[in-house]
Write a protein that binds this DNA or RNA. Structure first.
Length: 179
DNA sequence: CTCAGGATGATCT
DNA sequence: GATCATCCTGAGG
């Protein structure tokens, strides 16, 4: 699952032709207090216990959507930020923001820019409307502590393309990623 | 049935 | 940095 989180960095993600390069991810797994799957399977988190390579989409704070890629049972990788590449004008309209740097900087922003909603929960990310291509060249990577959570936040499972200007926030407690 | 509390983001100070 | 908007889920009575 950590391997998936790093492999996705530099990958190209599009939904209906809109998207860009994944520059920030966060990993969650079953025996992880911060994970939605920690207390077992429920109606809401069922996708996390389904087949791998599917989307787990959930609503955050009542207003935002967040997109995850499901790995093995009960673990998933949260897509936190993209470098916008495809359909930038469409993203600007959806976000009502002009600065490219801010279009997909954060899980909620990214979902708004790509028009991800709860009805995509459980869909395969290997078939339309998704399009996922692994990177031609592996980018330099950095990891740090996860953010926005109160439990088990010290785990260094937040991954980012080193030096990317498109991150949701700067990496904290930075460390090396050795593949 | 009630109800607290989020894997957030925009805005204000 | 603090606040708040706003929706469920799932835990507890």
């Amino acid at each position: 699952m950590l391997a998936v989180a790093t492999d996705l960095l530099g990958a190209s993600l599009q939904i209906d032709g809109i998207g860009g390069i994944i520059v920030e991810t966060e990993a969650y797994r079953r025996d992880d207090e911060a994970s939605h799957s920690f207390r077992g399977q429920t109606v809401a988190n069922a996708a996390m216990f389904g087949s791998p390579a599917r989307a787990y989409v959930y609503r955050s704070y009542g207003l935002h959507w967040c997109l995850n890629f499901v790995c093995e049972q009960g673990s998933a990788v949260l897509i936190r930020a993209l470098e916008p590449v495809y359909g930038i004008e469409t993203m600007r309209e959806r976000r009502s923001v002009s600065e490219t740097r801010k279009l997909c900087s954060g899980p909620g922003n990214l979902c708004k820019a790509l028009s991800v909603t709860g009805n995509m929960n459980g869909l395969s990310v290997l078939a339309p409307p998704f399009s996922l291509e692994l990177p031609a060249a592996i980018p330099a990577m950095t990891s740090g502590v996860r953010i926005g959570i109160s439990k088990a936040a010290e785990r260094p499972w937040r991954f980012a393309v080193t030096g990317s200007p498109y991150l949701s926030k700067p990496i904290r407690m930075e460390r090396n990623v050795t593949d």
